[in-house]
Simulated scan of single mutants.
Amino acid sequence: MSLWSSSRSPRANRQTRTIDVLVVGGTWNPGGDGVTETFIHALDTSIFTTRMVAYPAAYGTPVSYADSVAAGKRALLAAVDRSPNPVVLAGYSQGAAVAGDLAAEIGRGAHRGREVIACALIADPRRPAGHYLGDTDPGGYGVVGERPIDGIPTYWAAAPGDPITALPAGNPLRTIADLSAFFSFADANAAVHWAHQMLNTASRNQLQRWWSLDNWRQWAGALAYARGYLFDGRHTDDYIRLGYTTALAQALNRDVANGRL
């Protein structure tokens, strides 16, 4: 399938300018890890300069996942504003949620005046079904739901079996993601806030309906996907071992060189 789609016109002179790649790391690794490092090292340094964007990268302590993503978006937007060059937003895992959410907002016309020319996401927890890099559909979609990105060319690297980005619609692990977004026991107030947010999510019918009878064939898959995440490297090692991060960087290198970005 097509690697990207956009309503913007290609600019052939892009490759003559330096492009800043702003990278947001995954949970508990705001400074990057093997996955993000492999992606960065495969970028063409004659075209791109890269910079990690610091943010909490937390999941429950010291802040909740939802609050961490919100803080990451503010930090990433500030980094875009400080950049003197066109920008590519990039992220891995929780960092992909940050970069993808901001790209979606900019694509909708928010934050006007920012020159974001592309978005590159690894293991995005909000990857829409059917959007992936390469020829093999990893299946499913992001564990916390689907977030389309329009108006900005976007590349998704998704490894099959990774429950964070390629979870079947009927997998019960979706409820864990729904109910833990605001999880935090940093103090008593944080725990109360989490409880209130869980009740609000349920009362507003915002839980993902994995239990729909349309999905019954997928109900038994939670254990296999959990094992893939915890023990088999589906969310970590596979992106390096199977070349997904390198292919993502090479797609950016190629499309800039060809004047598509």
Rank of each mutant, 00 (worst) to 15 (best):
S5T: 09
S7Q: 10
R8F: 00
R8M: 03
N13C: 08
N13Y: 12
N13G: 10
T16H: 05
I19C: 07
V23R: 10
G25W: 00
P30Y: 00
G34Q: 08
V35H: 02
T38V: 14
T38Q: 09
H41G: 07
S46K: 06
M52C: 11
P56H: 02
A58F: 07
D67F: 00
V69I: 14
R74S: 15
L77I: 05
V80D: 00
N85T: 15
L89Y: 04
Q94R: 11
G95V: 01
A96E: 10
A99D: 01
G100D: 00
G107Q: 10
A110H: 12
R112Y: 04
R112M: 03
V116Y: 04
C119T: 14
I122L: 08
R126D: 10
R127K: 15
P128N: 00
H131V: 12
Y132E: 00
P138V: 02
I149N: 01
G151T: 12
T154S: 06
D162R: 15
T165D: 03
A166Q: 01
A166S: 06
G170Q: 06
A181K: 13
A186C: 09
T201M: 03
N205M: 11
L207V: 07
W210F: 12
W219T: 09
W219A: 13
G221S: 10
A226P: 05
R227G: 03
G228P: 08
G233V: 03
H235M: 01
D238T: 09
G243I: 07
Y244V: 07
T245W: 01
T245P: 01
T246F: 00
T246C: 10
A247T: 04
A247E: 13
A249V: 06
L252G: 13
D255N: 14
V256A: 07
A257T: 14
